[in-house]
Design a protein around this nucleic acid. Structure first.
Lengths: 348, 348
DNA sequence: CTGAAAGCGCTTACAG
DNA sequence: CTGAAAGCGCTTACAG
């Protein structure tokens, strides 16, 4: 007698339906090689006994697991969480499961993660905003399954990727501040020196240059991608004798810290200082004041990357890399600088 | 000749090492049944050829997949993301993989999620803050693998769970407001009527009752767990002829909306109105002003639930349900009501 | 349309 | 200490 705790197999169903297990397998996969009556009977029995085909048995036979591995630094980052949501939606809609693993930007963990993905024979891998890279990127590069990167560094070494145009986004944000009349514009980046921070800095510099505003090293500071880093870096900028009238932040979390730093010393936003972020997280609409920012199409990016991966798995040689554009979302954390307003008044 | 794209198997290693595949299997699992020299040689060959044992082959043989399924409503909720982070850390440390699936609180999706977990033969399931429940809870209940719930409704029907003490947390928050001198205290819940919102409401009522403050239906409003719902609900409360001097919010996201609503009509926080949340998300320290809230030990909760599950899988009959306590974190969004301050001044 | 057989990559009791 | 064998739950080419 079969132990109750063991899951049923197609053999059990075959016995009950008085057919071979091959026929059960075919019936459950809606093969046209089974007579409608037999198929119906088998399916009914399977349903009634709450039978579920074993994906592990199937995987061994087919050589595919219908699963993808997703590597993130941490799921606690709202930007990443949003992208993963889209990844999961897209994957599930195509009957793929998502195995999630966070690296914490720890090289050793990243190795383990990738190793466990290999052991599990995931069909493909998605790497999100990897910050370490150097160590395991080569490891990834030599893997034989498809890999798609989202906003990752070292995109050059890989064929497939989806990335935000960091430079254009940063330029748009900075240009907007310049158009408002700002001349002393700060930038708060990421001290870990991620490539995306470097690129946003470059975009910021480019915008200044085009407006003939000198780039001043003293107006840049380094945060850590989180509010705390933004807070501290902004405190430094605000303590400058001649402080900036506007600050472009690496991301919205950094901007939240910046808002807080300004608030702590009694500055009014945006009257005394303008703050602009990057990402457009869900909460960006609810900060005080609501945050002007560069929106990353998080959902689209997750979906596009997953589609590229799944199309690759389906054998289609689809597009390779895609660059998406950010969109400036103007809210209430930005305004012309006070001096500028005064000047305009005098003119009027 | 073997196709290059197919992963190596233990047979390939066996051939290269001139031993049987049984011996390879043993060597790679560090069995004492293999001579040290042979084991070393096998491992070296495996390493040099970048071989990874197939988890699917192993799973079929052992009947275990070393994976757990985690059901969430959405990973975009920061509270859930934090808990999942702890779950994943704990699971990975014990060599389990996490398969993530979000239900979007959509009954149909929840069914599919659970079904796919069954097919994948996950060893156990973790359900986080399920809000639908009614539909698939019975389905879950009849599954034969261990299930542990975190902050889920219908805990009664399951044996294993980890839950925050919603009533005590809500009471602590409300009592704190009362001690500050507030008498007109509002509550913004969740219109979906989740049990946890009902329980927090009950805790709020209990605290009022003990302080002999009448419960007024008009001071309660319903949000949606997100800032937008908190914003709208708070707008309603603030438009009352005799508006509340303090508001206890279902969660921090709701509180963010509440802060924004107060700010929009020019109220000063906490001078004109006190706001208190629940969760203590990472961003709660950086709202303007920083949010007083009831901290849920998110990391501990995720870790505890995962440990219960993994211990169960390891055969130990560990503890069953655990209730954890929230902790009141006082920041700057709460203060005595203006009237109270005035009265105190007159006394002094 | 159906079944018997082989095989996917492992583990492990059994025999030596 | 080692190997041959059986078996885990499927899929699918082959034969009928």
């Amino acid at each position: 007698m079969k132990q109750d705790s063991l899951p049923l197999s197609i053999k059990d169903i075959a016995r009950a339906a008085k057919v071979s297990h091959s026929t059960v397998s075919r019936a459950l996969r809606d093969s046209s090689l089974v007579s409608p009556e037999t198929a119906e009977r088998i399916k009914r029995i399977a349903r009634e006994s709450h039978f579920r085909v074993s994906a592990v048995g199937r995987s061994l036979a087919t050589g595919r697991t219908n699963s993808i591995g997703v590597v993130v630094t941490t799921i606690s980052d709202p930007f990443i969480a949003e992208v993963v949501t889209a990844v999961e939606d897209t994957a599930n809609a195509r009957r793929y499961s998502v195995i999630l693993a966070s690296s914490k930007s720890d090289p050793e963990r990243e190795m383990k993660v990738v190793q466990s993905f290999e052991e599990r024979r995931v069909d493909g891998i998605l790497v999100l905003a990897s910050r370490v890279g150097s160590v395991y990127m080569p490891m990834l590069a030599q893997m034989k399954i498809p890999i798609v990167l989202i906003n990752s560094q070292h995109p050059g070494e890989f064929i497939y990727s989806v990335s935000i145009d960091n430079s254009a986004g940063a330029r748009a944000a900075t240009r907007f501040l310049i158009q408002l009349g700002h001349k002393r514009i700060g930038y708060v980046g990421d001290r870990a020196g991620t490539p995306s921070s470097a690129t946003r800095l470059a975009g910021y510099r480019l915008a200044l240059e085009r407006a003939n505003i000198p780039f001043l090293q003293e107006l840049t500071a380094e945060g850590d991608v989180h509010p705390e880093g933004g807070l501290r870096a902004t405190q430094r900028l605000l303590s400058l004798p001649d402080r900036p009238t506007a600050i472009f932040c690496y991301n919205d979390m950094t901007a939240m810290g910046a808002l807080n730093a300004a608030w702590q010393i009694g500055l009014r936003i945006p009257e005394d200082i303008s703050i602009i972020g990057f990402d457009d997280l869900a909460i960006a609409s609810y900060t005080i004041p609501p945050l002007t920012t560069v929106r990353q199409p998080k959902h689209d990016m997750g979906r596009m990357a997953t589609e590229i991966l799944l199309n690759l798995l389906a054998g289609s040689t689809s597009e390779t890399s895609r660059s998406v554009q950010g969109e400036l979302i103007v809210r209430e954390s930005t305004a012309p600088p006070a001096a500028h307003v005064k000047a305009l008044r005098q003119l009027g």
